[in-house]
Design a protein around this nucleic acid. Structure first.
Length: 111
DNA sequence: AAATTGACGGGTG
DNA sequence: CCACCCGCCAATT
């Protein structure tokens, strides 16, 4: 497995229940700012087999973007189970639920 | 080796 | 807020 893929998998696994990340955010955290589509590819091909919380990944608008209708329903259901509100257009509130990686601190507190 | 695929994203009007 | 366009990137065809 390619290092990028491994990082993506690790990052997705690190998203806590109740939080969501966008494809682009994951790509960026994995070191490829323009790699959103690779993240898509990776999920597309390995989400089921690798026991990933793929349902915590949405697009940059907060929309559930899964093509397959059944999988989409599953995603909505799982998010709601975790307390993430999904509106009637299958959108989550990214402002409220966005995944915030706990360690890598970008701007240290300015005391 | 070129074209296609894929659950994308940001800029613009 | 919405629609549209174009750049993005690698596995697969």
């Amino acid at each position: 497995m390619q290092p990028f893929t491994e990082r993506v998998v690790a990052i997705i696994k690190s998203i806590p229940a109740g939080q969501v990340a966008s494809y682009g955010q994951i790509a960026e955290l994995a070191g490829s700012r323009r790699g959103a589509r690779q993240v898509v590819r990776i999920l597309h091909s390995m989400s089921m087999k690798y026991d990933l919380p793929w349902h915590r990944v949405v697009n940059s608008k907060g929309e559930i973007a899964v093509a397959d209708e059944e999988a989409r329903d599953t995603q909505v259901y799982r998010l709601e189970q975790e307390g993430v509100y999904v509106d009637h257009l299958n959108r989550v509130d990214l402002e409220a639920c966005r995944f915030i990686p706990s360690h890598d601190i970008v701007d240290p507190p300015s005391l």
